[in-house]
Amino acid sequence: MRRRLLAMVPSGEDLDVPGSINMWLFVVGELFIFAFYFFVFMMYRTHATADFVGSQRHLNLAVGAGNTVILLTSSYLVALAVQAAREGSHDRARRLVRWTVALGVVFMTIKLGEWAYEVRHGYTFPSDDFFMFYFALTGVHLFHVLMGLGILGLVLHELRTPALQRQFVVEAAGTYWHMVDVVWIVLFALLYVLR
C-alpha cells in the first residue's frame, strides 16, 4: 500500500513543471482548501436559495465584473512578464510586473470600496448567511491578493538585481498570482452571477 502511494509521488521528469514544484504543491493545496469553502457555501445556499439570491442583489454586478476584468488583466500582464523574463528582457519584465502590482492594488481598493458601500447600507458580516460568506470568502481571497503583492514585490527585487534574476522565481510568482485569479473566477461566479 505504502509503495503504491509512494509511486504516486511525482519525481524526476514529472517534476519539470513551470516555475517550482513546491509552489505548485502550495497552489494546488490552496485550490483544494478553497474548494472546501465553495462546498460549504453551496450547502448553505441550497437550503436558503431565495434568501441568498435576495441578498446577492445588493452586490453591484458591474463593479464585480469590472474587478474581475482587472484581475484577469493583471494575470495577463504577469504571464507576459514571465515570457519577457524568459527572453532575457528583464527590464520589460519588471515594467509588466509593476503594472500587475498596480492592478492588484486597484483590485483591492475596489474590493474595500465595495465592502464600505455594503456596510454603509447595512449589509455587514453578521447580517445574514449570504453576507457572512461574502465577507469571509472575499476577505480570505483579499488576504491571498495581499500575499501575492508581497511575492510580486520579491520578483521586482529579483529582476532588478543582475546577480539574481532567477527564472523559476518569476514563474513561481506567476503561478501563485494565476491561482488567485482562478479562485476569484469561481468566487465571482458563486457570489455575483449565480442566481
Binding site: W24, L72, I185
Partner: peptide, 19 residues
Amino acid sequence: KARLVLQEFMELRHAPRWL
C-alpha cells in the same frame, strides 16, 4: 475561464500531464 487561465496562463499545456 478557469481552464483557460490554468492551461494558458499557468502553462499547464506544456507541463507534465499529471498536473
